[in-house]
Write a protein that binds this DNA or RNA. Structure first.
Lengths: 332, 332
DNA sequence: CTGAAAGCGCTAACAA
DNA sequence: TTGTTAGCGCTTTCAG
């Protein structure tokens, strides 16, 4: 049923090799021959068999998208991922690489990656959702599969990281609050196993310290509920707080609720700043002042970096850091 | 560098064929031979080359994920997609099929699909984001590529649809409002080119008509802004409305804003119901009463249906319709 | 139950 | 410039 090179060759009265040369645009084919072959291909609806090409070249022309164990379940549902995928997709659009989303039976991504690679299904990997201390990273580095890790500083011949400047973003948020006259600024932190979370916390702490202010932190999860509970806790323990910086937008939304429940008016009685600039941030009332993270660009850069590595054989950059910026809305 | 069957055969002192038989778990190999081969494979770290297997079998073991032209740009960013992808991923997890997200250079998905298929990169397609009257569907049907289309009723030997019962969902929402005593219920519709949008509108209209009530509709886009503008318009033209049913959650959020701006208190002065039950719905104030759509299950069922078609050669079902249900929160 | 040979569709080498 | 030969790694005949 499918048309092969042999059939094109037969129909065009040339050898298979000549067809191959035409397909691969090798400039050693006579013009009239080339045109004849091209029109025959067209006529027969010939498409080269990518499987055969890949087997021959020993390249799958495919980049694997892998989600780390720690977040496999929930990560795929985060809005963050949409932007990231858009970036990957757009960056690979005009290349002849495809994106493979393999959700292996295995719960540990390292063996999955190694297997996909050894089985020649993928040439490289973009790894998403890895926690700070995850041993996966060591294994991935050891496996020598060209890899770009999102939101983690890693370096090596085969591994590079792409992330945003979370620390500077947090610092900018806190500086803004300080400039607006706030001195009692609390921090609603998430868990401490996420690299970007640690950086945000550090940005808060450094800026507070640099201005001689005392840090007041509470940690928990990343959800709205966590933000609500944390905020209640903060308001109770430190009623003099005039501002709160939340490590994530949903937490900030929770903080908004807790503040309302406590009879505090935002932003007048209490300023609230979030982080990430999710779509949600602009939709709540009052609209959230928050730190914008260029997630889509992160995706673009990650894919571009990997494509470059695949064509040149080495990483031109091993630690890309994109800038963040504060988006001022109504909540602070 | 990579270990091949030949090397395993050599090391285990058997023929290549025997190794193949062991790999494919054919029960015609003597036990001791099989064990010897298995341990050799283990020792050498052998992994079969999927490319060679696929070339041989003429199957890519891959399902393509394709986004329709009309939404290519924006669709990928919708939260809807996350759930869907989770479903696809979970449903394929324990199979030996992978998911390919090819974002072809081409802006029209039909040629992209045909090409991927003819080039043997994919065995089947899940098509997302097709508009009601999109000619893509005809082409896909004609191309004979096994395909599942999300949110569109299509049938054929090679095409099946998977969708939710949007009409019943809308009807349930309107019935709920009527039961609560509302009779002047407006409809904030989105664009009329989306199948699920038409169904929602129909559900609204049918239910209103069945109760002898007059439909009041306004159409526009699907965004919060559109909802806000539409709501302002409705309140102006029909100040006696006591309830509004929005075709999508973001629109409902916009309606909430417009109502607030107009000095109407939700839900007391005005009831608002949304559609989709996005995460956002639970986060806004007041929390949205909305129609839940089982998007994750849609993804699961779509992938399962396609996998079944791939193994049996025919669709066991060509039009799967999952139920929706009303989630009652605060806004109505 | 095991082994040898052929070929999936393509491309890299060489020869004509 | 074009055609021939060999082989990528695997599986499917068919003899042994």
């Amino acid at each position: 049923m499918p048309v092969t090179m042999r059939e094109v060759a037969l129909a065009a009265n040339v050898s298979i090799q000549t067809v191959s040369n035409v397909v691969n645009e090798r400039p050693i084919v006579a013009d009239d021959t080339r045109l004849r072959v091209l029109s025959t291909m067209q006529r027969l609806g010939y498409q080269p068999n990518a499987l055969a090409q890949s087997l021959r070249a020993n390249r799958a022309q495919t980049i694997g998208l892998v989600f780390a164990r720690s977040e496999r379940r929930t990560f795929v549902r985060k809005p963050y991922l949409n932007e990231l995928l858009s970036g990957f997709a757009d960056a690979t659009r005009d290349t002849d690489y495809s994106l493979l989303m393999h959700s292996g039976a295995d719960d540990d991504p390292a063996p999955t990656i190694r297997q996909l690679y050894q089985r020649r299904r993928i040439d490289a990997v973009i790894l998403v959702g890895v926690l700070q201390a995850d041993p996966v990273i060591q294994q991935v580095v050891a496996s020598a599969v060209p890899t770009v890790v999102i939101d983690l500083p890693v370096q090596g011949d085969d591994v590079a990281g792409v992330r945003a400047d979370y620390r500077a973003g947090a610092a900018a948020a806190v500086r803004y609050l300080i400039e607006r006259g706030h001195t009692a600024i609390g921090y609603l932190g998430g868990t401490l196993d996420v690299y970007s979370g640690l950086e945000r916390r550090l940005g808060y702490w450094e800026t507070m310290t640099a201005h001689g202010l005392r840090s007041v932190e509470v940690s928990g999860g990343w959800s709205r509920e966590d933000g609500c509970l944390g905020m209640m806790h903060l308001l109770e323990q430190h009623p003099n707080l005039t501002a709160v910086f939340a490590a994530a937008d949903p937490m900030a939304v929770g903080a908004l609720e807790a503040a309302r429940a406590a009879g505090r008016h935002v932003p007048d009685d209490l300023a609230v700043v979030g982080f990430n600039d999710l779509e949600l941030a602009a939709l709540v009332t009052p609209a959230l002042t928050t730190v914008h993270v260029p997630v889509y660009e992160l995706g673009i850069r990650a894919a571009e970096l990997l494509l470059d590595r695949l064509s040149t054989g080495h990483f031109t950059d091993t630690d890309i850091i994109l800038p963040t910026h504060l988006v001022i809305r109504r909540s602070a």
